[in-house]
Design a protein around this nucleic acid. Structure first.
Length: 418
RNA sequence: GUGGUCGUAGCUCAGCUGGUAGAGCAUCCGGUUGUGGUCCGGAAUGUCGCGGGUUCGAGCCCCGUCGAUCACCCCA
């Protein structure tokens, strides 16, 4: 065993599992593309200040989970802990916020959070996300939610639920938080809990302890503080979701970890994952762009956890599709035909066929075994006889039947039977 | 970050009250001269996570450390 190990808490995907990871990610992305979202490719590190201002100093993510370092020029750099702030920065920097609206983009890649690792919680993890910027319509909220839900359904996931709520506008939040703090102040709770509440009083709604849950049962509910406009917006979102045939439950005590959320907020929770059950979440962020120096546009987006969604598929024992098989596997017999064999493979590959070769100077039996393992649809044994005659037997690996083909026209013969 | 559990061949694991390691699967080779999947035979493989300690002797005991995992916390 090598003395080197992957850094603590990172997830890695390699064959066979990597093809499942790839399939999950592509399915998520495809859903976004079908709704008109376009790729935005961003750096994995940004100015530390961007996250401090965007995500919020008081959040756990910013206050204790960021990978922050000084670069060679003395700048404070942070590995992105989430995607939205970077997208906003880029959109503002390249003046997309002054062009035609909405801006609809998707991204995919690694994110970094220095937490204690657990199954489904990694220090480097993968997200696919989308952002729709510059629209107030509640219909776009529903679209964003539907992009995620559609992808989950396409993967075959069933054992999950969508929770939605409305966090209201800044004014709502201010008056609500004030009342909630007042209420919490009357509670008999331990010091650690009180400190958590001081940072973000909503956190107490998420407490797992029975006593705390009971205490919070009679706490004021944010939903009661919504302005008429916010309430109407939220109602319309629900109307759309129902019309789309998307099931949801209203969770009026949902807690989101990022400060910028306003209005519609949502979470997808999978029931088969243990403690790290959130497979995706997002919401609307009204003040974020202005806060970061851009136009005062609203936006809505989500981040989906690719690692956890793969775990969810595995928990539900979903058979993810196999990668399309090799079309031909060539077994060369002996040193003298090796060059001809690899050249034939190369020629076919240039033509767009998926071809592999039994390398490693295996005997015929080993070569055929390799052909079998490869999952190729056809196998072709290439020995000195075949080279001399210019013909060979093309063997169908499923049926075991073989037919004679001429090497020069192999490409056409293959296309006929594939 | 806090607490618990675990760490033996590529994988899944066994290893009795301490006497320097095994099984199944996978891999490779072969079962008469050039065709795979079954079956049979054979081979290779581990500094028992790492570092200390106790002991005549440790995979088994103790301490530390690294990693995974579970819960808290947090969230994707």
């Amino acid at each position: 065993m090598s003395k080197f190990q992957a850094p603590k808490g990172v997830s890695e995907y390699f064959p066979e599992r990597s093809k499942h990871f790839g399939f999950v990610r592509e399915t998520l992305i495809a859903s976004a593309r079908r709704s008109g979202y376009e790729l935005i490719e961003l750096p994995v590190f940004e100015d530390t200040e961007l996250f401090a201002r965007g995500v919020g100093e008081s959040t756990d993510v910013v206050s204790k989970e960021m990978y922050t370092f000084e670069d060679r020029g003395g700048r404070s750099i942070t590995l992105r802990p989430e995607g939205t702030a970077g997208v906003m920065r880029s959109v503002i920097e390249h003046n997309l916020d002054r062009g035609q609206l909405p801006v609809k983009v998707w991204y995919s890649g690694q994110f970094f959070r220095a937490e204690r690792p657990q199954l489904g919680r990694y220090r480097q993890f993968y997200q696919v996300g989308i952002e729709a910027i510059g629209l107030q319509d509640p219909e776009i909220d529903a679209e964003v939610i539907a992009v995620a839900d559609t992808a989950f359904k396409q993967l075959g996931l069933k054992n999950y639920r969508l929770e939605i709520t409305s966090l209201g506008d800044a004014i709502t939040r201010e008056s609500y938080t004030k009342d909630l703090r007042t209420y919490i102040a009357t509670l008999d709770i331990d010091e650690a809990t009180r400190e958590r509440a001081a940072l973000n009083p909503l956190r107490l709604f998420d407490d797992k302890r029975e006593e705390v849950r009971n205490l919070m049962n009679s706490a004021p509910i944010l939903m009661d503080y919504l302005t008429q406009e916010s309430a109407a917006h939220f109602t319309r979102v629900q109307e759309c979701l129902s019309s789309f045939g998307i099931d949801f439950v209203i969770n009026n005590r949902m807690v989101r970890g990022l400060d910028y959320y306003t209005g519609t907020a949502f979470e997808f929770v999978h029931m088969g994952l243990g403690a790290q059950s959130g497979i995706g979440g997002g919401g609307r962020y009204d003040g974020l762009m202005a806060q970061l120096g851009g136009a005062d546009l609203s936006g809505i987006g989500f981040g989906l956890g690719v690692d956890r969604i793969l775990l969810a598929c595995e928990a539900e024992q979903i058979a993810l599709p196999e990668e399309s098989a090799l079309q031909l596997f060539i077994v060369p017999l002996g040193e003298n035909v090796k060059l001809a064999a690899v050249t034939l493979a190369q020629t076919l590959r240039v033509e767009g066929l998926k071809v592999d070769v039994a390398y490693g100077d295996r005997a015929l039996k080993g070569g055929m075994k390799a052909a079998d393992k490869s999952g190729a649809r056809f196998a072709l044994v290439l020995g000195e006889n075949e080279l001399a005659s210019g013909t060979a037997e093309l063997k169908n690996m499923q049926t075991g039947e073989s037919s004679s083909v001429t090497l020069r026209t192999l490409q056409e013969d293959l296309k006929k039977v594939l």
